Simulated assay, not measured.
Amino acid sequence: MTASITLVLFDMEGVLSHYDRAARVIHLAAVSGQPPETVRHAIWGSGLEARADAGLISDDEYLRALGDLLGCRINREDWLAARHASITPNEEVIALAARVAERHSIAVLTNNCCLVTDHIGYLNPPVAQLFGPHVYASASFGAAKPAPQAYLGCLEQLGRGAAETLFIDDTDANVAGAINAGLQGYKFVSGDALSEELERRRLM
């Protein structure tokens, strides 16, 4: 028998917000004077972003390494401005989360470094307003989704059990990782489909 859900844990980018990587790249290309392909490689192709998301390097180490790859200094303001340009809140899904919050606990687990969660009020104001302090970066737990440690570290922080948590993400691997860690999982495909799923589970 499936356990009753007491916590709904949301991914952010791709679920609670739309993520425009190209906008982020364009901003950093302008700052660094490097072509977009160089910026893309520095962030994703080099493995730097993955190391930061997993908490293997500190935020300051991450910014220094990114600057080294781009041949210039990347300060926090530049980085945050680029990330801000890449995020558009998904108001439809945020409204669904608000309805869930009327009767159940909600939180966010995002594959990101702590720069994102430390500055969530600037980067994604509607998410910051709704979720308050319960927006967690994978880097805080020393692993990125779909590693079990990411989910279980977050749940330990929240004082919640895995079986009573529904995790919502837009990628198959991250949903599978949650299920493997003992959570219940749902793959996000659209606001309408999520609304039906939440209604079916009587979560709103």
Rank of each mutant, 00 (worst) to 15 (best):
R24D: 01
W44V: 12
S46N: 01
A30Y: 06
R83H: 06
Y62F: 09
R64K: 12
C72L: 08
G71S: 15
H41F: 15
N75L: 14
L69K: 13
T38M: 13
R40C: 13
L80N: 07
E77A: 12
L66N: 04
H27S: 13
S32K: 02
A82R: 03
R76V: 08
H84P: 04
S46A: 02
G71A: 05
V100L: 07
R51E: 15
A82S: 07
V31Y: 00
A30N: 10
P35R: 03
S32Y: 01
A54E: 02
P36A: 11
H84V: 05
L96W: 02
A65Y: 01
E92C: 06
D60C: 06
I87E: 00
T88D: 10
L70T: 06
G67S: 08
N75T: 11
W44Y: 10
A85M: 07
L48F: 11
S32T: 10
I57T: 11
V93L: 05
G55N: 09
G47S: 05
N90C: 12
V100G: 09
D68S: 14
E91V: 03
Y62M: 10
R51A: 15
A29Y: 02
L56R: 06
L28I: 10
A54W: 01
R24A: 04
L70S: 14
I43V: 14
V31P: 00
C72F: 06
G47P: 15
W79I: 00
A30M: 13
G47W: 11
N75P: 05
V25E: 09
R76A: 09
D78S: 10
Q34P: 05
G45W: 02
E49P: 05
I87L: 12
L96R: 06
D59M: 12
E61G: 06
L63V: 13
R64V: 10
P36C: 08
A65E: 15
Y62H: 14
L66I: 08
I57L: 15
I57H: 11
S32G: 02
L66S: 03
A65R: 11
L66V: 03
W44F: 11
A54C: 07
E49Q: 13
I57P: 10
G45L: 08
I87T: 00
A52C: 07
W79Q: 10
D59E: 15
A30S: 12
N90E: 04
L63P: 04
R51L: 15
R83W: 12
D78L: 09
L69V: 07
V31F: 00
N90Y: 03
A54L: 04
A85Y: 02
V31N: 00
A65P: 07
L70Y: 06
G67P: 14
V31D: 00
D53K: 03
D78P: 03
D68Q: 07
H84D: 09
G55K: 11
R24C: 08
G67K: 11
R73Y: 10
I94A: 06
A82N: 03
L56D: 02
R99N: 08
A97V: 11
W79V: 00
R51S: 14
S58Y: 05
A95D: 15
S32N: 02
